[in-house]
Amino acid sequence: MVTAASPSVGPTGRPIRSFPAPASLKGHGPARIIALCNQKGGVGKTTTTINLGASLAESGRRVLAIDFDPQGALSAGLGVQTHDVTTIYDLLLGTVKDAASTIVHTSIAGLDVIPANIDLSAAEVHLVNEVAREQILARVLRQVTGEYDVILIDCQPSLGLLTVNALTAAHGVLIPLECEYFALRGVALLVETIDKVRDRLNPAITLDGILATMYDGRTLHAREVLERVVDTFGDDVLETVISRTVKFPDASVAGAPIITFAPEHQAAEAYRQLARELIFRGAVA
């Protein structure tokens, strides 16, 4: 029988610990590229990209977030204009050559973004006949890796050519996973896709972790799903757990990360904890 975690044990069943504050960096770059990926929509990929990026920037890291979803939710969530601007789509098609010219500074010091809009939905059609089409994003990002400590790619909810591009460009993958049964079912397929990319396109890619999101410890279902994820994936499941709260949609409407919209809220502290855990694990410098 699954029961609620005791005060000394976290939702993942492991003892609660506080990860140390990260040391300051003496320099910046080259960036480690992390793809936030899950073919199921609505699991917290964009929310995690925004708030992890902001938390890493708060800790002194230079962060570039890539909006790689035609919905442009990452751009909107950071208050970035997506119409009549150059986007990641222009870089993929080669109509714009200079990646630096598409970078937009956000209101968060140290956090930049390359925006996207609905144009990106046509990218797969245009790229399908390109030579080495799976490596186009990697070539684009090569121009800017020296300027940042981490690049976060917010993938669209599919396992199509854009997501394969992100996995080919990435050093690591972070899988946000909603604590819900149907979200759990798709993880095996995603891990299989990552394995195929490792075998055929990007031997160096690693799984940086599975992040439990939208967790509600009051429900037996959420606790059972998280327990099953930990049983299946073990230490690949991050200790940090992101709980469900109305503050996330409120922050999205405001076009701001939770750490500036509600800096004292437990959700803001959870993302700061996530940033510290990834630095502690070596996924981020």
Rank of each mutant, 00 (worst) to 15 (best):
P30V: 01
A35M: 03
D231P: 08
F248V: 02
D84E: 14
D119H: 03
R281T: 02
A54E: 04
V253S: 13
T168R: 06
V63E: 03
H171R: 01
L36W: 01
V150Q: 06
P30S: 11
Q143E: 15
L177I: 09
T232P: 00
V164C: 10
F280G: 02
T49W: 14
T47E: 15
P11M: 06
G10D: 07
T106P: 07
T3E: 15
L211C: 10
A256P: 07
T213M: 05
H265F: 09
L56Y: 01
A35K: 12
E178H: 12
S6I: 05
H126T: 12
D235W: 00
V187A: 00
T245C: 09
D67W: 00
L278D: 00
L184D: 04
G186P: 03
D90W: 05
I50N: 09
R61E: 02
A138W: 06
T48E: 08
E192D: 14
H126N: 13
V284L: 01
A188T: 13
S101E: 12
N129K: 15
A188L: 10
L211P: 13
P203F: 09
L56T: 01
D236Q: 14
A256W: 08
G44Q: 11
D149K: 03
A23K: 12
I118A: 04
G60V: 13
L184V: 11
G60P: 03
V9E: 13
F233R: 07
D250R: 13
I136A: 06
L64I: 00
